[in-house]
Simulated assay, not measured.
Amino acid sequence: MTGTAVVVGAGIGGLATAIGLRRAGWSVSVVERRTETARYGTALGIHPTAQSALERLGVDAAFGGRAVPYRGARIRTPEGRVLASLPLERIERKAGRPELLISRPHLIDALLAALDAFGDVPLTYGENVFDVEALVTGHDLVVGADGIRSVVRAAYFGERSGPREVGTVAWIGTADFESGIHGETWGSGRFFGMTPVEPGRTNWYATVPGTVPAGDLPGYFEGWHDPIPRILTETDPAGWISYGIRHLFPALPAFVRAGKVALVGDAAHAMTPNLGQGACTAVLDAEALARNVARHGRSALPAALRGYDAERRRSAQRVAFGSRGLHRFMTTGRTGLRDSLVRLLPG
């Protein structure tokens, strides 16, 4: 083995990082504070660049069998008038492949299967990390993939950057019928989205200001175009997931520290969900970190981490900044000006 690494966190970024490092010949272990891998959530958008990264990690076969293409999505007003198209066709033309959607549980299972195939990567559940310094002392490389409240980030990067609320709450769920239309509907201070996720089902998400009980959510979209009211009345609120939208602020000056500590995913750049790039950036982080480590080797690990930081930090932070800006734009109360600007987007 080239070196020893411990990955803190068994989400998408953590599992992908562990796979990449093990493929590079490192001895890897993973620790997760939860008692099992979290499979909550609905559809995740996977951009062609992230698809390519999954291919380089050897996860593409298991992943591709459960993903569906995302095409023909529009931005609409609450009355149903089309304002613009999402740039999915341009993405597909440029990349030669479409954006894909996959349920989070399916992606997690694909990553776990790829990790299990090595047969020698221990994944320990129910382990809260309190002493990051002990991990750093006992391993050549420590990777913080432990989310927006990362203990690795707090220990080695300080607590200046942390979770910041943006004042809105997201709701997500899955309807047991196909919506027939896909895209996002933008209202005043709120929006509603629908995407495919698998045959016969529709992934949906909604954002509203402040704290809203599940029973009140349909009222925020009363009178909106079909099938939005139907989705909210014909799906079981017990299966809905709600969370306050947050992002990491201020942006970190580096994703690496001390020549042997690195951050990936939300630990490094948690963002609002508006661009649908959270999972993609985590996968891209993981693949880039593993590739740089493989290229430089254990003896030049500080150089490998600098290479990872140079490759990923500005790119990921631009996405995070863009997502936060889009959140403000989508939820503005000045809908007339916003809708006029949206109409100027290329179709």
Rank of each mutant, 00 (worst) to 15 (best):
234 E>C: 00
22 R>A: 14
61 A>L: 06
23 R>N: 14
321 F>C: 11
276 G>A: 03
65 G>W: 04
280 C>W: 00
72 G>H: 10
298 R>G: 12
166 V>S: 11
96 G>A: 10
192 F>A: 00
249 F>M: 06
11 G>M: 11
119 G>D: 05
87 P>M: 07
245 I>N: 03
231 I>F: 00
335 T>M: 05
198 E>S: 06
184 E>C: 05
120 D>F: 05
162 G>R: 13
30 V>W: 08
108 I>M: 11
165 E>G: 11
261 V>D: 04
179 S>M: 01
317 Q>E: 07
221 F>A: 03
117 A>S: 10
153 R>E: 10
277 Q>C: 06
339 D>Y: 00
176 D>K: 09
142 V>D: 00
294 A>Q: 07
200 G>P: 03
85 S>C: 09
291 R>M: 07
210 G>H: 01
72 G>F: 01
327 H>D: 15
229 P>I: 10
97 R>G: 02
66 R>A: 05
249 F>S: 15
55 E>S: 15
91 I>P: 05
134 A>R: 14
75 I>G: 05
156 Y>C: 14
199 P>V: 01
301 L>I: 10
190 R>W: 00
340 S>T: 12
223 G>H: 00
101 L>Q: 15
13 G>L: 02
35 T>S: 14
189 G>A: 03
257 R>P: 00
191 F>L: 10
261 V>T: 14
267 A>M: 06
124 T>Y: 11
253 P>L: 00
157 F>L: 15
1 M>Y: 12
259 G>S: 01
115 L>S: 09
123 L>H: 13
342 V>R: 00
134 A>F: 05
65 G>T: 11
175 A>W: 10
24 A>Q: 13
319 V>S: 02
55 E>V: 13
109 D>N: 09
31 V>D: 03
106 H>M: 11
236 D>K: 04
250 P>T: 09
240 W>K: 06
125 Y>D: 08
323 S>E: 12
81 R>W: 09
280 C>V: 01
84 A>C: 12
248 L>N: 08
302 P>D: 08
283 V>R: 02
140 D>N: 11
267 A>F: 09
186 W>R: 04
213 P>N: 08
135 L>D: 04
120 D>I: 07
202 T>Q: 03
12 I>Y: 07
283 V>D: 04
5 A>K: 02
106 H>K: 14
159 E>T: 15
268 A>V: 13
46 I>C: 05
243 Y>Q: 13
211 T>C: 04
16 A>S: 12
186 W>Y: 09
71 R>V: 05
306 R>Q: 15
312 R>T: 00
247 H>E: 15
236 D>Y: 04
279 A>I: 06
274 N>D: 10
161 S>L: 00
102 I>E: 08
